[in-house]
Computed example of a mutant assay.
Amino acid sequence: MPDTAITPDRAHRIEFDERLRRAVQARTTPVVPPDGQMLRWVPVSDLMIDGSYQRMISDRGIGAIRRIIQDFSWSRFGALIVTEHHAGPADGLVVIDGQHRAIAASHLGIEEVPAIVAPWRDAAHQAGDFVGINCTRTNVASIDKFRARVTAGDQVACDVAGILSELNISTDVPPGTSLRPYQTRAVSRLEKLVKAYGRGTVYTALDMLIDAQGEQPDLLTATTIWATVAATDALLTAEGDIEAFAKLLEVIDFETLAEQGRELVKLRGGQGGIRAAEQLLAAYNKGRQKKVTL
Rank of each mutant, 00 (worst) to 15 (best):
V95C: 14
P114C: 04
I110R: 12
A127Y: 05
D122W: 04
G88A: 08
V82C: 10
H85N: 09
V117C: 12
G98N: 09
I103T: 07
T83Q: 06
V117D: 07
I110W: 08
Q70A: 15
G98I: 02
A104R: 00
F77R: 01
A90S: 13
I81D: 01
E111W: 05
P89R: 14
A105I: 05
G109Q: 04
D91C: 14
H107G: 05
I116L: 14
G88S: 07
D91E: 15
P119D: 03
L93S: 11
E84M: 07
W120T: 13
V113K: 02
A123D: 14
A105G: 09
S73E: 07
S106N: 12
V95M: 12
R121V: 14
A115F: 01
V82Q: 05
I103Y: 00
S73V: 02
H107N: 10
W120L: 09
A127R: 13
I103P: 00
E111C: 10
H125Q: 14
R121M: 15
G78Q: 08
A105L: 06
A123N: 08
G109F: 05
R76S: 11
I116T: 07
H125K: 11
D97L: 08
H86V: 13
T83W: 03
F77I: 00
G78D: 02
G92E: 03
A127N: 09
D122Y: 06
A79S: 15
A105M: 06
L80Q: 00
G88M: 07
A87I: 00
I69R: 14
A118I: 03
V113C: 08
I103V: 12
D71Y: 13
V117N: 09
A115G: 03
